[in-house]
């Protein structure tokens, strides 16, 4: 394949960036999007140019490191697919592909396509855990979990924290991320003791990080590589209303 890329280049957090055009001939349709960028980077380095910086780690769709706004869609055109799992055959030969970093006040650009997503970590730190005495593992069936609850919790727990929901949301809201983290514990018996405190602290942290609010556009659900449902957001709101009414004085 022969592609043309327009890639956001920005030397540092404080530098001004711009879209730079690159010619990318001889790209195999079987490459992943990140492998394609690797090839482009090798060619850049051979010429003595700076390679394009982008985030990646597992390259198998489970770590949440990869990102990229590709042709105006978070993680590109394939549904339920992270950028590392996106193949070049999803594009047309000769196509011009725009590649931009996630954009949000809470996600400042560090360099080129790499943004700082630690705001999501701080939301988890605010309450995305359960407090339990550790020790020897207890019997797996000591706490009964209804199948429906286990399934719902697993669906929410599929969130890999990539931030595509924020990137895709016109309000740059982290509601889908926060809601899935709240749901995956809130569906389980182990998550109940801290359920109300959890929603209040995590929502509070989400707002401190200056994410936007939810208008229910639905873009986040479409962008999510793990297909997390906006139903979780409705659930978060329900928890928040109940907790706000009972726990605040």
């Amino acid at each position: 394949m022969h592609l043309r890329l327009r890639v956001w280049r920005q030397a540092s957090a404080t530098a001004t960036g711009k879209l730079v055009e690159y010619d990318a001939p001889n790209i195999s349709p079987d490459m992943s999007f990140l492998e394609m960028l690797d090839v482009v980077n090798e060619r850049l380095m051979e010429k003595g140019d700076d390679p394009i910086a982008f985030d990646h780690d597992c390259r198998e769709g489970i770590c949440g490191s990869c990102s990229l706004m590709i042709n105006g869609a978070a993680h590109g055109p394939m549904k339920a697919t992270a950028t590392c799992q996106l193949h070049m055959r999803s594009f047309r030969d000769g196509e011009t592909i725009d590649v931009e970093p996630w954009r949000a006040k809470a996600f400042p650009v560090i360099r080129d396509l790499v943004v700082d997503r630690s705001a999501l970590d701080r939301i988890i730190q605010a309450g995305g855990f359960i407090s339990a005495a550790t020790g020897g593992a207890q019997d797996a069936n000591a706490i009964l979990v209804p199948k429906t609850a286990a399934d719902a919790a697993m669906d929410a727990a599929a969130c890999i924290g990539c931030g595509a929901c924020v990137a895709a949301c016109p309000n740059a809201s982290a509601s889908l991320f926060t809601a899935s983290k709240i749901s995956h514990l809130g569906h389980l018996p182990q998550g109940q003791p801290e359920r109300r405190r959890r929603v209040l602290s995590m929502v509070n942290q989400m707002e401190l990080e200056e994410f936007g609010g939810c208008t229910l556009y639905g873009e986040c659900q479409e962008a999510c590589p793990k297909e997390i449902s906006i139903d979780t957001i409705s659930r978060m709101n329900g928890d928040f209303i109940r907790a706000g009414l009972t726990d605040w004085r």
Binding site: L19, K105, A172, G212, G218
Partner: peptide
Amino acid sequence: LTIQNRAARPMGYVDREPQVSTWASR
């Protein structure tokens, strides 16, 4: 909310395609 939501993305995308949001919501 509009002020908060606008402020949450001070710099927009050059290329952004709404995927599923309705015209009504936008």
